[in-house]
Amino acid sequence: MLSHRKPTLSGRYARTAYLFLAPAILFFGVFFFLPIGNVLSTSTRTGPQADRFTGLGNYARAAADPAVHHAFLVTLVFSLAVVAGSIVLGLALALALNQPLRGRVAFRVALLVPYLTSVAIVGLLWRNILDPQLGVLNRVLGELGLPPQEWLNTHPLATIVAVTLWQGVGYTMVLFLAGLQGIPEVYHEAARVDGASGWLRFWRITLPLLAPTTLFVSVMAVISGLQAFGQAYIITNGGPGDATDLFVFHIFQVAFDSRDFGYSSAQSVLLLLVIVAFTVVQLRAGRRGEIQY
């Protein structure tokens, strides 16, 4: 956000400012605003060359297309599960790590490593580990006396949610850790003096004061969950059937397998609107729920 403190350098230096900005104006114009204009205009056209004007035809088609509805529902469930998991697991790990322990840095490194790993590695590795025949997981389960799994067939969506959390939970943990370290110790001290239990202090002090972090984590998790792609492309190929047909994977197939740029562009615009709506609603709700101490 722009600060209210005005920069003191006078307008005499406007020429320098524009000179320094020129490459950025060119870049964002050509690689952001031109594509946004083009995706909007392509979304109103149809045909193999996307050259026949159809107005809102592609949007009407999407509104009546069960495959689009299904992909949207799958993606929504996926995103909400990732949000819930990120918050619960990330906060739990941050609370555990926010104590005077030996090896804190080592734990943090270990938990954060998957976040910096390519989705290609994550996807391929887990596809191998989870494979019912070849995968090492069934051997481990067997040695623990547990029945073998076939989760990618029996619970495909839950499984890719779990893999996504495996990769991303270290990131939310670090965010929550920073949030926890920003809570002044005096609040806890005062509550302790008043005889509040640890559980009560968590609900009445820690959680409310973490609200901005929780809000940020949930906004980020929704945004990244709604545009997940690699999990479907690499691990499940959208299946079995269409059980994990994540929206961006669906758009990708309509665009690059079916070569229907008009229809896929309209779907991109729709998903963008959903993401913007989610973000606005979350920020609004967050602002209303903010608590001042």
Partner: peptide
């Protein structure tokens, strides 16, 4: 550090690009 015409407009436009996920740009 600079003040110049259209500064706030350009800044808001830059902010707006944060709201544009890559999948919106991939087809164009």
């Amino acid at each position: 550090k600079f003040r110049f015409p259209l500064r706030n407009t350009l800044f808001v436009l830059l902010l707006a690009t944060l709201m544009v996920p890559f999948f919106v740009r991939m087809i164009p």
